[in-house]
Nucleic acid binder design. Structure first.
Length: 757
DNA sequence: GAGCGATTAATTTTT
DNA sequence: TTAATCGCTC
């Protein structure tokens, strides 16, 4: 009967069979966390708990969908559909759709994504006559977001001396005012931003007792995934929801906490034991994912962090291959190295495309990999970046729908009142706003009462027609009518450029997605909200990663390390291991930030099952200019006995790629990577120099300060004397005598050289 | 008010 | 490098 418990180890079983009372599962990377979580839900249901009484909160829609699917599979019936499984944001949005009127919001409230929020903030900054060069909307938004995530409202923000000091010190004393206006504006617009979905949920539970009791009664069992990534408002909400039954199960790994920039506090998981009496703690320490080598490296890296829950990850898997550390000259070479290595692995070890992932710190790094993969005809897919729903043309179309559903929303109204162009310009709009403020009306109410402007009146009539369609047409028909009658589709269709074509197709795709939404039949017993309002609220919370149409497509996956959390791949490339990049320049000067970067690196490494590459480049393009970075400090934390560094590229590009009289592009070659390795090996052998350990305080000096005769230290070659120097400031070279007859020509801009004083 | 070319600013990470 | 904004002309 309970066959689904077979195959669990002792700790996993312990976690699964714990039914009542608070439970904390400390789940190391690859320790079967999702399996435990889903099996536990199935176990609860198997032991008489009604699915309607179980709430499971995750951070991504994908994790939620996977969980539901797996529970369903274990149970073999359709009960799992009654579970409340979803992201914090989507579950709370659903609840607020019912209860928002109690807080003065329409139940059809609009959800602002961060772009929407930033543009509201920007217009407020401009209205306040502040300089938006100094008050950058992005900065202000992050400040406000952090406040909301800590449950600090505008009044508390203003009264918090520490926050005020920070704002004064950073010369942004008006943020409190902006915050206040922003909140008022969102309310007036009947809109909530991402943070509001948590903030307002908390407000609902604290100010409306019957709502609190309703949800407390309903959710007898609460499970929270990735607990280390919860912020203060999520924490407070969970605490309240769970207070009646205290059947709270949190799963997390402090070593994988990588969202503090979004307000997450590791403290939540570190202190969980103090929050409740009799907390049962289960540690999952057996890793089923990675080779011993990969795990050793990961353990070693994370041991450089100070704050953590003590645990020892181990595995009974094979030792596996050494990890390969490769250096390249440029970012393009890095791309080429990775695609070469992929091709080589495919030929030698029969890996499929989908067995590979390339993980980077920032989205902007994807370019060089895309190019080289494309050149080698390796199919790939990029995750993240600009999501479909953030594209301008899609947002324009959505703005109409949002306005029709919620006319309070001034932002979306302003977005489309003159798009496609219908002769309603800035002057007219300013006049309306002025009038609206005088009359204490919303923008829409003002123009609805007649504006004295024929073009505006036409616009009002058109929107009203759309509103009447809400009653008579389904979401898809309404959307296509809007596309036709506004001239939006025509406008895009007229643009025959490649981009224009893509924009047109994107809007068509949006229409298709609406169609799909309306046509998905209600499952038996299930009451789905098929209104356009419900659709709009859902999609704003969707990300690109959730469009799992080609989850199993045979493509190489490219994504940020953040996006890779929770995933695993046989072969992983972690790229761009350079100071200023990984660790990020933003996080290098603060111990806590740096430790988070290290956890991020830990997350990246632990994605790999079998093989792992770590690459870095001497130089790369940034804003169109070449910049040079030192190798990442994290590289030094990888134990040498587990690495193969023979892939370091030679220091002079021409020596490999431009040998005269050799190979033409059309010749059939052994894979480029193996060839590259052979040459690199040869080169390494011929230039072999006793390994040099740089001095503890090794720090590269500016080449401009160097002169003939100086004593210098090279990172690899050790101590030497400059014999001659040549070349201009851009490309300065030096011959350096390293003793024992070793004289080397060094490009000073590339090499890291310290002047011995 | 619309459309075009010129200037400039930007890169962490995401629900 | 690219995307967005600015300012000028029609």
């Amino acid at each position: 009967m309970q066959h689904y418990l077979e195959g669990l180890n002792a700790q996993q079983l312990e976690a699964v069979q714990h039914v009542d009372g608070p439970l904390m599962i400390v789940a190391g990377a690859g320790s079967g966390k999702t399996k435990v979580l889903t099996t536990r839900i199935a176990y609860l249901m198997d032991h008489g708990v009604d699915a309607f009484n179980i709430l499971a909160l995750t951070f991504t829609n994908k994790a939620a969908a996977e969980m539901r699917e797996r529970v369903e599979k274990i149970l073999g019936n359709r009960e799992a559909r009654n579970l409340y499984i979803g992201t914090f944001h989507s579950i709370f949005a659903k609840m607020l759709r019912v209860d928002a009127p109690k807080l003065g919001y329409p139940s059809n409230f609009t959800i602002y994504d961060s772009d929407d929020a930033k543009s509201v903030i920007k217009s407020i900054i401009q209205e306040m006559d502040l300089d938006d060069k100094h008050y950058k909307p992005n900065y202000v938004y992050n400040r406000i977001s952090a406040a909301k995530n800590s449950l600090i409202d505008p009044v508390a923000y203003r009264n918090d001396t520490f926050i005020q000091q920070e704002d004064v010190r950073s010369k942004h004393p008006s943020i409190a005012d902006i915050y206040e206006r922003y909140v008022a504006r969102c309310f007036k617009n009947g809109a909530m931003d991402f943070d509001d979905l948590l903030f307002k949920m908390h407000e609902l539970l604290t100010t409306v007792p019957e709502a609190l009791i309703k949800y407390q009664r309903r959710f007898k069992y609460i499970l929270i995934d990735e607990y280390q990534d919860t912020n203060a408002s999520q924490y407070a909400i969970i605490k309240m929801l769970g207070a009646m039954h205290e059947n709270i199960c949190v799963v997390g790994d402090d070593a994988q906490s990588i969202y503090s920039f979004r307000g997450a506090t590791v403290q939540n998981i570190l202190q969980f034991r103090d929050d409740y009496d009799d907390v049962k703690v289960v540690k999952l320490e057996q890793n089923y994912r990675s080779t011993q080598t990969i795990l050793h490296v990961a353990n070693n890296i994370i041991s450089n962090n100070r704050k953590q829950i003590p645990k020892e990850l181990w595995t009974s898997n094979v030792t596996g291959e050494k990890l390969i550390i490769a250096r390249t000259l440029t970012d393009n070479d890095e791309g080429k190295f990775v695609s070469d290595a992929i091709k080589e692995q495919q030929m030698r070890n029969h890996f499929a495309n989908k067995d590979f992932a390339i993980l980077y710190r920032t989205n902007a790094q994807s370019r060089s990999f895309e190019e080289s993969l494309r050149r080698m005809n390796i199919p790939y897919k990029i995750y993240g970046g600009i999501s479909f729903y953030q594209r301008k043309e899609v947002k324009d179309m959505l703005a109409y729908l949002r306005l029709v559903v919620n006319t309070r929303d001034e932002e979306n109204l302003k977005r489309i009142i003159n798009y496609p162009a219908r002769g309603i310009g800035k002057t007219t709009i300013d006049k309306i706003i002025l009038h609206a403020n005088e009359q204490q009306l919303t923008f829409w109410e003002t123009i609805e009462r007649g504006s004295g402007n024929a073009k505006v009146d036409d616009f009002v009539r058109m929107i009203r027609v759309f509103q009447s369609f809400l009653e008579t047409k389904n979401a898809y028909d309404l959307a296509s009518e809007i596309g036709k009658r506004t001239g939006l589709l025509q406008e895009l269709h007229n643009d025959k450029t490649v981009e224009g074509l893509a924009r047109y197709e994107n809007v068509q795709e949006l229409l298709n997605s609406i169609k799909e939404f309306t046509e998905t039949p209600d499952e038996e017993g299930e009451l789905l909200d098929k209104s356009i309002g419900s659709y709009l609220q859902q999609i704003t919370l969707l990300t690109d990663a959730d469009n799992d149409d080609d989850e199993n497509a045979d493509t190489v996956k490219l994504m940020t390390v953040h996006a890779a959390k929770g995933l695993e791949f046989p072969c992983v490339f972690v790229v761009g291991l350079e100071e200023q990049l990984f660790p990020s320049a933003m996080a290098m000067y603060d111990r806590d930030d740096l430790e988070e970067e290290r956890r991020l690196f830990y997350v990246a490494i632990t994605r790999a099952k079998e093989r792992l590459w770590v690459t870095y480049s001497n130089s790369r393009y940034r804003f169109g200019t070449l910049i040079q970075n030192d190798p990442s400090r994290f590289l030094e934390e990888i134990p040498a006995e587990h690495t193969d560094k023979s892939y370091a590229a030679p220091t002079q590009r021409g020596s490999i790629f431009q040998q005269p009289g050799r190979q033409t592009a059309t010749q059939v070659q052994p894979s480029a990577a193996s060839q590259l390795k052979q040459i690199a090996d040869k080169l390494a052998a011929s230039t072999a120099v006793p390994a040099h350990q740089p001095s503890a305080d090794f720090k590269a000096d500016d080449p401009a300060d160097m002169a003939v005769g100086m004593k210098v230290e090279h990172q690899k070659f050790g101590f030497g004397t400059i014999l001659t120097m040549e070349g201009g400031s851009q490309n300065r070279m030096a011959s350096i005598d390293f003793g024992n007859g070793v004289v080397k020509k060094i490009v000073l801009n590339y090499a890291k050289i310290r002047i011995v004083r």
